[in-house]
Design a binder for these strands. Sequence first.
DNA 1: AATGAATGAGGGTTCATTCAT
DNA 2: TATGAATGAACCCTCATTCAT
Lengths: 217, 217, 217, 217
Amino acid sequence: MTEKDNIDDIPELINVDENLTPKQKLILQSAIEVFSEKGYAAASTNEIAKKAGVAEGTIFRHYATKKKLLISIVMPLFSHILAPTVLKSFKREVFDNGYESFEGFLRVLIKNRLEFARKNLPLLKILIQEMAFQEEFRDRFQKVFRDNIYGKFKDIIKYYKDKGELVDWEEDDIIRYIISTIVSSLITKVLIMPPKELDDEKFIDQTIRFIISGLKK
Amino acid sequence: MTEKDNIDDIPELINVDENLTPKQKLILQSAIEVFSEKGYAAASTNEIAKKAGVAEGTIFRHYATKKKLLISIVMPLFSHILAPTVLKSFKREVFDNGYESFEGFLRVLIKNRLEFARKNLPLLKILIQEMAFQEEFRDRFQKVFRDNIYGKFKDIIKYYKDKGELVDWEEDDIIRYIISTIVSSLITKVLIMPPKELDDEKFIDQTIRFIISGLKK
Amino acid sequence: MTEKDNIDDIPELINVDENLTPKQKLILQSAIEVFSEKGYAAASTNEIAKKAGVAEGTIFRHYATKKKLLISIVMPLFSHILAPTVLKSFKREVFDNGYESFEGFLRVLIKNRLEFARKNLPLLKILIQEMAFQEEFRDRFQKVFRDNIYGKFKDIIKYYKDKGELVDWEEDDIIRYIISTIVSSLITKVLIMPPKELDDEKFIDQTIRFIISGLKK
Amino acid sequence: MTEKDNIDDIPELINVDENLTPKQKLILQSAIEVFSEKGYAAASTNEIAKKAGVAEGTIFRHYATKKKLLISIVMPLFSHILAPTVLKSFKREVFDNGYESFEGFLRVLIKNRLEFARKNLPLLKILIQEMAFQEEFRDRFQKVFRDNIYGKFKDIIKYYKDKGELVDWEEDDIIRYIISTIVSSLITKVLIMPPKELDDEKFIDQTIRFIISGLKK
DNA sequence: AATGAATGAGGGTTCATTCAT
DNA sequence: TATGAATGAACCCTCATTCAT
């Protein structure tokens, strides 16, 4: 499993790398916190500035607009949230060698996304919230999904369907159930449930079993 | 009116009954629209008043505060969204007569909640959004769930588990998968997917099959 | 000279009539003062509000924008500053009866405009200043001039030129010298010179003589 | 260089000579443009810096204050706008030799000032604008006028009045009409009228004739 | 009860000015 | 000397809320 390392190489913490000045990092960090706690509309640049230990004007020097501040926080997420590398490396592994199981695929996917969600909780909360109101976010999300994920995902599903491991539904429906189950499980686990109540292994095993059984032929 | 508890009698449209003056209804209707479109924080009482065709002052005569207006919109939802009657009537039917299947239970649940979601789309959008920020909503939701739903739900799950129709997990976990699957399916179906793309029957059948298989022993 | 009264009927004080609320009048009055003293760009809505004894928000309730406040001050001026009635009544008098002299024409014009300038000094200062920067003001001014003044003025000039009282220049040039002399004289008299240094009668006589001699055949 | 006072030697382009560093020249040039286009109050040091291709801080290193930048632009104008040399050289010529006519005097004056106005249009626009708001500019202007111009001008007017070429008004009034006619003519010609509509010679001849006739005995 | 003018605190944003580099 | 990031006061404007009518 030499390719497995790839997954771990995805920079999971967003907005903390890049060549940002220290003040910019502070501002981003603070903005993420405040946006996440109060929502974009209810957050005030004044509070963000205070929490960042920075003058309010400094925010606007770097991010001309409150909206642009939001965008510069949310946009980088899209390239990470859908984690193309997970699919890419997996697909290569499976199609080249043919030994990976559907369960293995799900396990990697869930594990990886759980880790990602844990590390970027406030960011994800912002994203989910604003997707409801900002059309550009929805559009961008769809585009990234269609361009980078959908094709590979479909190929993988088709592969296992042809092998007789999956129910005879359209690939789109199957994908929909997989994703919505994973997403809702993650939200439940990470956002709603009391922390540590359910240990990760058990949670992952259950979710995998639920999906596999649910989609078995 | 002995049948008042009947599923079909649940008033599905919220905030339009009760003893409200015409102006109050207009205000609530308008507030729901605006809150739903822009989010609570970004909505202005001025816009709500204009869309309702009343003076801005009139809003505050009835709902002392913008926040209280939100609350008086969202709170009644809790007693409906969790639809105790569905469970209650179902439980009575099953335990009294013993003839209903797990699939029948799911079918009624999903059908009913799909209908409800369709009829109260804007309201639900508001609720979901604000649950993220207003702790009191989360608390109230949990309380209503614990007091009215959880017990009956657990009994029903236990019943089918004892009959050997369900996987041998803790009831809580099973409930979690059922609810999160239904919720995420509904959100996908009602909010995200292009309308009419998937006909209701096929959608319901698939979802039921997915859950049943996923939770089969 | 029954028509002469018309001239006196021109409402010379601008922005104080109309159906304005008391607060609106206060705001306009205050805005005129502040704009006139500091210029539009350097004037702050805060200062205008304070001087008007009104909350800053009240300004924006009536005039959505600082710019619109300026416009609603300046625009009405255009219809008055060029005082079509002066020309109209004069033209009628002259062409109907034929007894008025070029000197009489000038005298009425200057007297009337002097009075107007005196009564609307701050307004005129604002107008002159902003004409330099706001293209829409220049355009509007030109349009009003072309549509209401130019034609009548030209007819009058032509009439006296034909009578041999005026130099044989193009009407446009003659009009230019008359207007620029009157304007510059008024500015000098009203804005620059120490008040009362030169009594009005002497000033008017001199200016008339200067123009008449300057444009004599 | 005995001829240094010669009219032709007056440096007509302001603020480009002196011992200024290249950066200073760039800043001044840029500031003149921006002040002229937007007005002093509406001009931002940021825009000036950008247009000059220097850092914003550099402006304040040379001109401690935005106001001082304005002053250092406007002040040198006073010594040029009133062009003492015109009068001085003219006066010498006339009184020493006695051959120059009033018309010749006017012609030199107008021609010279027209040229000057053309070359320093943006500067003059700034000056005129700010004279309305900055008392110190008005004071300085008056002082320069009194100290350098008024006396010589009066002598010249007196000379021609004594020769019987001018109307029998007070010298001050005569000066006023000459200056205000020239100024308003120049403004009309240089700022308002479509360029080249009136050729210079015709314009100058007309203006001279207008003034001479207007002030003829 | 209903209105809508008025309020003023707070919103996002701009900008002259400072200062460490 | 020149820079440009940083500042924070002030700017224009919005908005929930009040209150006289």
